[in-house]
Amino acid sequence: MVKAIKVMLIPNNVQKTKMFQYAGASRFAYNWALAREKENYEKGGKFISDSELRKEFTKLRHSEEYAWLLNISNNVTKQAIKDACTAYKNFFKGLQKFPRFKSKKRSMPKFYQDNVKIQFSNTHVKFEGFSSSRKANKQKMNWVRLAEHGRIPTDVKYMNPRISFDGLKVKKLEKQKRRLQRSISRSYEKNKKGESYCKTNNVIKKEKLLLKRNHRLTNIRKNYLNQTISEIVNRKPRFICIEDLNVSGMMENRHLSKAVQEQGFFWFRKQLEHKCGDKGIQLIVADRFYPSSKLCSCCGNIKKDLKLSDRVYRCACGNIIDRDFQASINLKAYGERFAS
């Protein structure tokens, strides 16, 4: 069985710098391969295979102008060239639009790691080529900490491991938004005249910029939700079962309100209902008081004293399981009872 797992990494500053270098090299190799294919096609030549392009790129790496590429794992650039060739072939097959060159500012930084050389432990993941030194203290730089321990199995074969910086854009925009809000507040206080506030041209510019940041953040979150919903619906399940959450009650918790608001539960449910209707998939909504997390999936016992901080469910019958995974099992059983 092939299973996709996405986990967050917590690199230090040195590792983060190395990752950005890998992502930059991957983008460079992709754009280079796409430019070569385009140039060759305009001259009337046939399609250049990725193996030929990789041989040509190897010679390029050893030139003085591109010597910086020698500090990057060869597998990173090889896979980027292969991706460019695949995208180019898919265009001529009519499967997608013409591939665009990757922009340094707008494209998501990401790169590939060799599936044979990448290693996982319960707490760390080992990358290829971060440090070539054999000294123990230098070798530590190759091991990047995982945010969730024990999530990725260590005794399986890995396929197509990718590293992407999908959360940095949101964090950066959130930081810009906070700075703009504080700057606007200071400007209002500075230009206050008696009991009234004077809105200067600079304040108007900052407010327009703040509005753009809010729209950008909203669009990113909605796009992520749409992609998630499409991924679920495209699997063509017989039914989908979700919970009827008390969102207004969750918003009253001052520690969780911001996180709950950003998840967009209402938008997610409405879009899921719409897409399930289009695909002919039955959407089942579990009752709000159905104990999906507190109900033991083995013996049926309900653990009433289960707290939100208890991430692992432990039952007297011996069942020890992640509470969210158990909730999904119980929701599946709930959906099977009501599925038509």
Rank of each mutant, 00 (worst) to 15 (best):
S26P: 09
V203W: 08
N301P: 08
N75M: 12
N202M: 13
I184M: 10
G45M: 05
S183G: 07
S107Q: 08
E252V: 11
R238E: 13
K140N: 15
I152C: 02
F20G: 13
K135G: 10
S26M: 05
D166Q: 12
I81E: 08
S292Q: 03
A80N: 01
K192G: 03
I48F: 05
E231A: 14
R178E: 15
F101L: 11
C317G: 05
C315F: 04
G318N: 02
I229H: 03
V312A: 02
I240P: 03
S293A: 07
M108L: 15
R54Q: 15
C276A: 14
S230T: 13
S293H: 03
K177T: 14
I220A: 03
T77Y: 05
K303Q: 01
V2A: 09
L272C: 09
C276V: 09
F92E: 05
T77Q: 06
A33M: 02
V156G: 00
R221H: 14
G45V: 06
Y313F: 15
Q282N: 08
V170Q: 09
D322W: 01
N12V: 04
L210N: 08
W143T: 06
S297A: 05
S49A: 10
R145F: 04
I152Q: 03
V233L: 04
F130S: 02
D310F: 04
W32M: 05
V285R: 06
